[in-house]
Amino acid sequence: MLSEAQIFALLRGTGNTILITAVAIPIGIIFGMILALGRISGNKILQKLSWLYVWFFRGTPLLLQLFIIHFAIPLIALDITGNKMPINAYMSCFIAFSLNSSAYLAEFFRAGIESIDKGQMEASKALGMTYNQAMFHIIIPQSIKRLIPSVGNEIITLIKDTSLASTVAIFDLLRTTKTMSSSTGKWVYYIYAAAVYLVLTSVIQIAFDKTEKKVGIYE
């Protein structure tokens, strides 16, 4: 079966996959919410900026975004400053995956917030609440139940997409498996990889299904 070194390598690969997801999702949620609020605000400049952001990050491959951050930006920096500025592979992944998730989550959040009946904002205003008070106390709390499944989906997508991290020399789960397979000539490692991905995504799926039910208690 698996040697100790192999188990260790698989664990490390899984750890990297989890690490990237665990960093990118919270940042994605916060930044995505800011983008969504910008998009629905009355401010034309914020609307445009938010739209441009989502347009770029949803309209180009995640792999390209990762390459831009990891390979192109150091080259651009070299052209401008004349100094080499290599960027840490983990840092590249954190940035690329966070920025990419933000774009997707922003769209989910925007749709979720816009799906709340506009009578809610009117009632809040009529009671004297400011736009921000209404947003944070009335509108967003109601949209959370509708946002939970999309955050769950985004985490699952991200867990799978972390395999792209191998392109910037990070040993994620998939790359670890592939290396084992090619060095030993055995295919069974791919089964392990599939099993680990399934365990991770199932845990997320179940946790989010449960949370969704709990949060929706008032309906």
Partner: peptide, 30 residues
């Protein structure tokens, strides 16, 4: 404008708050 209270055709209660929380929310916030 808060001198004017308004009641809507469609109620527009806040569904995520209980009846009493609906009544308490604006005085606390505003």
């Amino acid at each position: 404008c808060i001198e004017l209270g308004m009641v809507f055709q469609g109620f527009n209660l806040f569904p995520h708050l209980t009846a009493i929380e609906n009544v308490m929310k604006a005085p606390i916030l505003v």
